[in-house]
Structure formats: C-alpha cells, structure tokens
C-alpha cells in the first residue's frame, strides 16, 4: 500500500522534472525558461521527496524511521521557502544587468492598468 503510493508520488515528481528540463531546452529566452524552472522544479522536488519519505516509512512504524522521513520532508519545505527567493535574485540581477525579454511586438515593459497613471 505504502509502496504503491510512493511509486505514484515519485512518478508524478519525475513528470514535473521532465517538464522543467523540456522547458529549459525549448522556451525562447531566459525569462520564460525561468517560468518552467522556478515552478516545475519546486513541485517535482516536493512530490519526489514525499514519495521517498513514504517509501522510507515502509511497513513497520518506528520513531527513528519517522524522524528520517520528517527530515526528508524538511528539505522540501526549505526549498519551498528558498526557491522563489533564488528565482527572484537571478531575475533581478538579469534585469538590472540590462537584459530585456524576448517579445513578439518589441515592447519589453508595459504599464499595467493602462487607463490610469498619466
């Protein structure tokens, strides 16, 4: 039972890692690759590590096993906090370095609620 769940979670996680890799290779510029990376990898890590923690718990419940499983999940929680920060730092450094995104109509920066302001 536990193993079937673990296989399910790990496969789902691998699918998201696959998405991240394909996005990294196919999308046109740095900013859009960031979309594929910053989201899919966090999700992939969370699902894969959940699956591995379930597998680690195994059949017999014991205190030390649960502790190790908890630590495995702690990695995922940590990355949930750290991942967006790392993404943000990279994007900011690229934007301040003067790299503009690839666009279809050549306008890189739009002001959003267009009616107001001005």
């Amino acid at each position: 039972m536990m193993e079937a769940l673990a296989v399910l979670f790990i496969s789902a996680g691998l699918f998201f890692f696959f998405t991240a890799t394909v996005g990294l290779l196919r999308l046109p510029d740095f900013y859009s690759r960031m979309h594929a990376m910053g989201k899919a990898d966090t999700m992939g890590l969370l699902l894969t590590l959940t699956g591995l923690a379930l597998y680690q718990m195994g059949e017999g419940l014991s205190w030390s096993k649960a502790f190790v499983a908890f630590k495995i999940l702690l990695i995922a929680v940590f990355w949930f906090l750290g991942g967006p920060t790392a993404t943000h730092a990279l994007l900011r450094s690229a934007f301040e370095g003067g790299k503009m995104p690839w666009t279809k109509d050549g306008q890189a920066v739009l002001d959003w609620p267009r009616q107001e302001e001005r």
């Binding site: 998201f16 394909v22 999308l27 859009s32 999700m43 503009m100 995104p101 890189a108 920066v109």
Partner: peptide, 28 residues
C-alpha cells in the same frame, strides 16, 4: 501552485508553443 505547474507543463510540452506564449514585463 498546483495550477501553475499544470499551466507550465502544458506550455512546455505543447507542440505549437510559439503561438501560445506572449511574454512581457508588466509594471504596476
């Protein structure tokens, strides 16, 4: 977050991805 991942997965794996995306930087 779950929706975001499905969205990105669909975009990355879509065969005609170039027509779907229209990236911009928005300021508000």
């Amino acid at each position: 977050i779950f929706k975001a991942n499905l969205h990105v997965a669909r975009l990355a794996l879509h065969p005609r991805m170039g027509e779907l995306i229209d990236p911009h930087i928005i300021r508000f």
